[in-house]
């Protein structure tokens, strides 16, 4: 039965990971705009010329 201690600890730890992931997603603003990303995903890259100097965002 005492294996339950470990199992519960493990399940709590995993749940905690998901909670942290949720907190991160809220803080990074993913729930601020629930419309634009659905449009953005449909854009094709025009392909012919690679965009000049594509920079990583800061």
């Amino acid at each position: 039965m005492s294996v339950l201690f470990i199992l519960i600890a493990a399940s709590l730890a995993i749940a905690l990971l998901f909670l942290l992931a949720f907190i991160w997603s809220v803080k990074s603003g993913q729930y601020e705009d629930d419309y634009t990303p659905s449009v953005r995903i449909l854009f094709d890259e025009t392909g012919k010329s690679k965009p000049v100097n594509k920079t990583k965002s800061i």
Partner: peptide, 11 residues
């Protein structure tokens, strides 16, 4: 090119 990123919030 001096603009490195732009993001639209449509709503």
């Amino acid at each position: 090119p001096a603009i490195s990123k732009s993001q639209v919030n449509f709503l």
